[in-house]
């Protein structure tokens, strides 16, 4: 067989090439073209189910129009990873670069943070008294692998929360929302952070020291940081947002 037969077959299945029965023997009841069409149909059913599981917030927000958008993305970016759980990787950025409403791309980003956090590892959470060691530099902190920080310009996190609890979807409003998405036991949560807390966690996420994180927090909120630092860092530990750097 032509060495490119697998690529040709995959292209037919995902709709990138017209179906052809040239490679296939057919059967008593099906032509070769009808045979490959079965796989093409299953491909669309399987991918749609998987994608819908990954971006429930986006699809709830986008409504009926969302399906065509999803297929436009999948046609341009067919799944390339062995895990179907990675099927929506890059979707939020793709939406943002293809003129989608900002709340749509931000909801997709939030969906992705929730789904990837759900399967993320658990690092060792520091004890509150270990924060002093972190300040002196003898202990390094990092974000827990299941935590993602999102600087949002729309209130999609509030919309998703209400919707996921079964309520009517509230309108998305514009604003600045600094959000940490994280996991508690086996459930995903999010918390809206104050600017200083968000800045401090951002430094931790980039591998900075706790001293650098404090500096960033003070720079973000010069008036309030001094009085809030202890509470912020205590909440990072209490919520399990940080780990002892591996």
């Amino acid at each position: 067989m032509n060495p490119t037969w697998q690529a040709e077959m995959v292209a037919m299945i995902r709709g990138a090439k017209p179906l052809s029965g040239d490679l296939f023997a057919g059967s008593a009841t099906l032509t070769g073209e009808e045979q490959i069409a079965i796989y093409a149909e299953q491909y669309r059913l399987r991918l749609w189910d998987a994608f819908a599981e990954e971006v429930p917030g986006y699809l709830a927000l986008a409504g009926d129009a969302g399906e065509a958008v999803v297929w436009a993305f999948l046609d341009a970016h067919p799944p390339g990873h062995w895990s179907l759980g990675r099927i929506a990787d890059g979707f939020a950025d793709w939406l943002a670069s293809h003129g989608a409403p900002v709340e749509h791309s931000e909801m997709a980003r939030l969906d992705h943070a929730v789904m990837s956090g759900f399967l993320g590892a658990d690092g060792q959470t520091p004890r509150p008294e270990q924060l002093a060691d972190a300040l002196t530099g003898s202990l390094r902190l990092a974000l827990q692998p299941h935590v993602q920080l999102l600087a949002l310009t729309t209130s999609v996190q509030r919309t998703r929360s209400v919707w996921s609890l079964g309520g009517a979807q509230p309108a998305v409003v514009a604003g600045t929302f600094l959000v940490a998405v994280y996991r508690v036991d086996r459930a995903m949560r999010h918390v809206e952070l104050e600017p200083g807390a968000f800045a401090a966690l951002g430094v931790v996420a980039r591998g900075g020291t706790l001293a650098d994180a404090v500096t960033a927090a003070v720079a973000a909120e010069p008036e309030r940081a001094a009085g809030r630092l202890s509470a912020w860092f205590a909440s990072f530990v209490e919520r399990g947002l940080v780990q002892i750097a591996p």
Binding site: Q6, A7, V10, I13, R14, Y39, Q42, Y43, R46, L47, A50, P78, P79, G80, H81, W82, L84
Partner: peptide, 10 residues
């Protein structure tokens, strides 16, 4: 299940 670049997950 596909090619090195595209997995059809079938």
């Amino acid at each position: 299940t596909g090619t090195a670049d595209v997995r059809v997950h079938d």
